[in-house]
């Protein structure tokens, strides 16, 4: 004999995966917060700026930029600069914003609220920065400034996604360790870890997202053979799947560390506005 199903009133229905439900709730909330005129203006600048730079270069040389130069330029402008700036403004205020707005306590008192805040904000940062970067990529390709730019669109879309995922997770660390100085600390992390340590051909650069992205760029766009021998040290020798896995592992590790810190952190009442 089967037991009749228990009739749960609609208002009592709990999400089957409460952790995912709170992450989705926070992500939606954070994205709604980003829809303000200043943030939208910033996003518009992020979308237009790479094309403006490429157009200026085209204007200077009088013809489309050849791929050997255009692809690295596009890489520096979009997966590096646009993604990085987008993530700085969306991920760095992870905790500071909540403390300043007085919403931290509302979130932290919910079961899984801190985890939801971290992962939901990470997701919102990836969606927002990724969308801006993809729009910038689309505009740059449509502008036809780079010869055969459309052929690398797929590659760049993946690089943008990986850049946003890895770096949003990286910026979560200063955001939870030094919430009130998170933006400055994140810029420091970007410069010291991603750009300084990432360019040192030693074990230390294995822990950076930038090494993986550069390696994927040269592997997928065929630029590896064009790189001078002395610059070969700036990319990894392992295959692309290894690089993608490395970014995913780094993302998971950074987020796990940030989560552990955030769960353990206490903010005295004086820290809240």
């Amino acid at each position: 004999m089967t037991t009749p199903p228990v009739d749960i009133p609609d208002a009592d229905r709990r999400a089957p995966l409460p952790a995912l439900a709170s992450i989705a709730a926070v992500a939606g909330f954070q994205l709604a917060r980003l829809l303000t005129p200043p943030r939208l203006a910033l996003a518009a600048i992020g979308i237009v700026f790479p094309t403006a730079v490429l157009a200026a270069a085209v204007n200077g040389i009088g013809t489309s930029i050849e791929p050997r130069l255009g692809i690295p330029m596009l890489y520096l402008l979009i997966p590096e600069m646009v993604c990085m700036l987008g993530l700085l403004v969306t991920m760095s205020p992870l905790v500071a914003d909540e403390l300043e707005r007085g919403t931290w306590v509302h979130v932290a008192v919910r079961p899984g609220g801190r985890r939801g805040l971290l992962l939901g904000t990470w997701l919102a940062a990836v969606i927002w920065s990724g969308a801006v970067a993809l729009a910038a990529l689309a505009l740059a390709i449509l502008s036809d400034c780079i010869e055969g730019g459309a052929r690398v669109a797929g590659t760049f879309a993946v690089l943008i996604l990986l850049s946003c995922m890895g770096r949003a997770a990286l910026f979560a660390l200063p955001a939870v360790i030094v919430p009130k100085r998170a933006l400055v600390a994140s810029v420091g992390v970007a410069l010291v870890i991603e750009y300084l340590a990432g360019l040192i051909p030693a074990v230390v650069n294995q822990f950076t997202v930038s090494l993986r992205l550069r390696t994927l760029l040269v592997a997928w766009t065929g630029l590896r053979r064009d790189i001078p021998a002395e610059f070969q040290l700036l990319v990894d020798i392992n295959r692309p799947w290894y690089q993608v896995s490395a970014v995913l592992v780094l993302t998971a590790v950074f987020l796990a560390i940030a989560w552990a810190i955030l769960e353990w952190r206490q903010f005295p009442p004086s820290d809240e506005s």
Binding site: D10, R13, R14, A15, A24, A25, V26, H106, R110, P111
Partner: peptide, 20 residues
Amino acid sequence: RYLVRLSGFTPAAAALRADR
């Protein structure tokens, strides 16, 4: 609704609870 969803309820349940 946002706060109720953070407590683990479905969006529909959160909306009902918030209104009530």
